[in-house]
């Protein structure tokens, strides 16, 4: 029993702490997302070239950011799990996977919806689009792999290794538009120079990115809380069954 308590000590602390933070995270995410998207959809100006199709970026860019950022988080959890055997990292990696995959799919779909009228095609096999599609397959592979084993521990281990291998795709996505000629345009928001987006479009975009990020965090935390409680329920039921036997 002492061992059981010790094993749950850390997740228990997580449940208390996250339970307090989650409402603020969720409300801030919802409010900022609504403000960013509402501003982008109804008040931001149309682009001089793209017309109103530019409004798709208020979804496309946050989704792309979370696709990469979420994968970075997944890889970080995998590192924590492989090296330090952190008790929450495995569960976190499993819960980030589907949400990140959803963001990647949304990024690809909205990009396609923008590309059809703007470029004249739904899809091209250029380096940016292809590396983003590879990221979707990495997510899907992780989702499948962590559930493919009878023993969850082995699934976590295999998923963590896949996630760390896939990290090489992140710099490829980021720099694909600089290393190679791509149809996709280069980054408009950089850390090294002024953004090339008009301020009346940049603000709703930044707010939308922040709102999506907080919403992503809220959904992952809520899923992780559920996963921790499910694991604790399973552990208690198992212990009870063993006591009875």
């Amino acid at each position: 029993m002492a061992i059981t308590l010790h094993r749950f000590a850390n997740p228990g602390q997580f449940l208390r702490l996250s339970g307090r933070i989650l409402p603020y995270l969720a409300v801030a995410g919802v409010v900022l997302t609504l403000v960013g998207l509402g501003w982008g959809l109804f008040f931001a100006p149309a682009d001089y070239q793209q017309g109103d199709a530019v409004r798709i970026i208020y979804i496309h860019v946050p989704a792309a950011w979370l696709a990469s950022g979420g994968y970075f988080g997944l890889a970080l959890c995998s590192l924590l799990s492989l090296v330090w055997r952190h008790p929450l990292a495995d569960l976190a990696a499993v819960e980030i996977g589907p949400v990140g995959a959803g963001c990647t799919a949304l990024c690809l779909a909205t990009g396609s919806l923008w590309g059809r009228p703007m470029w004249g095609t739904w899809w091209v096999w250029d380096a940016r689009l292809t590396s983003m599609l590879v990221l979707l397959f990495l997510y899907l592979g992780h989702i499948a792999l962590v559930r493919a084993f009878d023993s969850p521990e082995r699934g976590y281990r295999a998923g963590a290794i896949l996630a760390l291998i896939g990290v090489v795709d992140l710099p490829v996505i980021k720099f694909s538009v600089e290393w190679w000629n791509t149809l996709h345009q280069p980054a408009s928001i950089k850390f090294t120079s002024a953004p090339t987006v008009f301020s009346g479009m940049l603000w709703p975009l930044l707010i939308s990115i922040l709102g999506f990020s907080l919403g992503f965090a809220a959904i992952v935390v809520a899923r992780l809380r559920a996963a921790v409680m499910e694991r604790r329920t399973r552990g208690l039921l198992l212990a009870r069954a063993q006591e009875a036997a």
Binding site: L41, A46, D52, A53, I56, I59, L113, W114
Partner: peptide, 17 residues
Amino acid sequence: MTHLPFILASYGLAAAM
């Protein structure tokens, strides 16, 4: 608004997801 079907599809997909 120009390109309305594409914009509506994008925002609809995002909201649904």
